[in-house]
């Protein structure tokens, strides 16, 4: 592996053409990822999701993506032919989206979707694929994998659906996982279960994980490192454990404005946005 970094991003830009001119959703984002958990945090419109999508190659076709460097395992993703990029996607790089309702095929059983994913990336027999899919469902702590295998996505709860989605994404043994708000649609208690599964798998398999979220506190409790984005730019990168010593006023304001149990602050401090943050 080159330089020890799984993913290197340098000056990533994503531009959307609109009738009134071009809108830059991502404006020069740079970071490097090893086999670690990296959190990307920001509010809506900060460009965090578009960053993840650009790495995955899932940017809408009308948008332009440019970067000085966008390398996965030493290979430049932007100059890669579409076929190889597709093979990479779902194989060595996988993505989990926010709502399993929309990312699982509603007319196919969960088991078949997992098997199909595996068989597009590896040449395995049907029986073996089934075996491995069942193992994977068990690995994401689904209690009765055989039953869930034959269910359709609408027949399972949100937490179960998200676990199935994780199973589907992990079946091809990816090295990099991008999770875009993977738990935001779930209840708090379920949310933590799903995170625990993700955490264990990342640790066991030595994957790199990019965890995209709006929830600064959740990210800081889960990730090793945090990238804070604002208006398409990275305003601060820091270790999750050092979040309380954040330098940038935006990071500090974001941390401060959330209500905390037991803290009696009326009114809540409000984030005063400065125009120069977006420069």
């Amino acid at each position: 592996m080159s330089g020890g970094n799984l993913l290197e991003v340098e000056d990533l830009r994503v531009t959307f053409p609109t009738r009134t001119g071009k809108i830059e959703a991502v404006r020069g984002v740079s970071f490097a990822l090893g086999r670690e958990r990296l959190g990307i945090v920001g509010e809506s419109g900060s460009g965090k999701s578009q960053t993840g999508r650009a790495i995955m190659g899932l940017t809408p076709p009308q948008a332009e993506v440019s970067a000085q460097k966008l390398a996965f395992d030493g290979r430049d993703l932007l100059s890669l032919p579409a076929r190889e990029r597709r093979a990479l996607r779902g194989g060595r790089v996988a993505m989990i989206l926010q709502d399993p309702k929309y990312s699982l095929d509603p007319v196919m059983t969960i088991g078949r979707q997992i098997v199909e994913t595996l068989r597009t990336h590896e040449k395995v027999s049907k029986a073996e694929a089934r075996e491995r899919a069942l193992d994977m469902l068990a690995a994401v702590q689904i209690r009765d994998p055989k039953r869930v295998f034959d269910l359709h996505p609408h027949e399972v709860s949100g937490g179960m659906g998200q676990r199935a989605m994780i199973a589907m994404m992990l079946i091809a043994n990816p090295e990099l996982m991008i999770a875009d708000e993977p738990t935001s649609a779930l209840d708090v208690t379920v949310q933590l279960d799903v995170l625990a599964i993700l955490d264990r798998l990342v640790a066991e398999r030595g994957m790199g994980l990019i965890f995209i979220s709006h929830d600064l506190r959740l990210v800081s409790s889960f990730c090793d490192r945090v990238v804070v984005m604002y208006a398409g730019k990275v305003v601060e990168q820091l270790k999750a454990s050092e979040l309380s010593q954040a330098q940038h006023p935006y990071t500090r304001g974001l941390l401060d404005c959330m209500p905390k149990i037991g803290a009696d602050r009326h009114p809540l401090p409000v984030l005063q946005r400065q125009a120069e943050w977006a420069l």
Binding site: V188, A203, E204, R217, L218, I261
Partner: peptide
């Protein structure tokens, strides 16, 4: 209690983090 604990954020049980540290 469970709700209260869950809203405190993610807590890595020492067992798994020790294991990952060991592997690294």
């Amino acid at each position: 209690k469970r709700l209260l604990n869950a809203s405190g954020g993610f807590v890595r049980d020492d067992d798994s983090s020790a294991r990952s540290a060991h592997e690294a």
